[in-house]
Amino acid sequence: MLKFAIKRILVSIPTLLAIITLVFFLVHITPGNPFDGERALSPEALKSLMAQYRLDLPMWQQYLLYLNDFIHGSFGISMKYLGQPINHLLFPDNMGGFWVTLRLSIYTMVIAVPFGIICGAYAGLHKNSWFDKLVVSSNIFFTAVPTMVTGPLCVLVFAVTFRLLPAGGWGDGDIAHLFLPVLVLILAYTPTIAFVTRGSIIDVLNSNYIRTARAKGLPTKKILFKHAIRPTLLPVISLLGPMFAGILVGAVVTEQIFTLPGLGVLTTNAATNRDYNMIMAITILGSILTIVFNIVVDLLYMVLDPKIKQ
């Protein structure tokens, strides 16, 4: 398994390099530069800023210097938050940036994953029951009603009307401040997990080997826990990897509604401001997370599916 992991990590290096190269050139050829604004800078000031950020060099030189910085663990300096290192903005010493989003994602996943799997499994086992219908319809409902709607609704009900919880902000990362954003994310992700689990368990239970096991007279419990659980989890796990990476870099709407100091707002601002270094950093971070989670998913697959091990 270790050999497999190392092989996967080595393969992902060229992938990452390709992403960096592509994004670097795409970002730099987009019209407009980070220092264009309503107030046009004087030519001297612009020249000096371009030099400070190495934007006066030929593109290939900028690219090589960027790679060099990246290998040394630096994402460069922000062009929007003048003089602030990107590393410091993304991974601040105090609470903020990636750490906020990470906590948000972990809390969400810790609750949504077991809850979703249990609900989905129960629904699959009791196909066409009222609970099954609830799982299916809530998946449709929460896919159609995005966090952009559930978020403000939760704020309206719990914060503005009943004054039970704060309307936004991070506070000290306490439960009161985290409750609503985590709830909204759970509402967004649990139904999908449950729905996929449900579909998977129904498929597995209809498969030939389970029918054979039944025919052999094995007790239902044994069939479920010995034979059905592993193949049921396979599609769920392949869903969870990208989902976790997705929340980490993509909880933009939730973070904006609840005014949390996470990565989301940094991401949207970076693109409009042409903060080249910030766009690069966030894309690279997103890619690394996706790659890592995919490797984890593959490893879990190996554990769950003996066919892949061979």
């Binding site: 403000p152 309206l156 004054r163 704060p166 309307a167 936004g168």
Partner: peptide
């Protein structure tokens, strides 16, 4: 000093007295 980009979010937090 808070950096609330979304005017609705800001208005909600005003209403709750935050």
């Amino acid at each position: 000093i808070l950096p609330i980009v979304d005017f609705n979010a800001s208005f909600n937090r005003y209403k709750t007295g935050e």
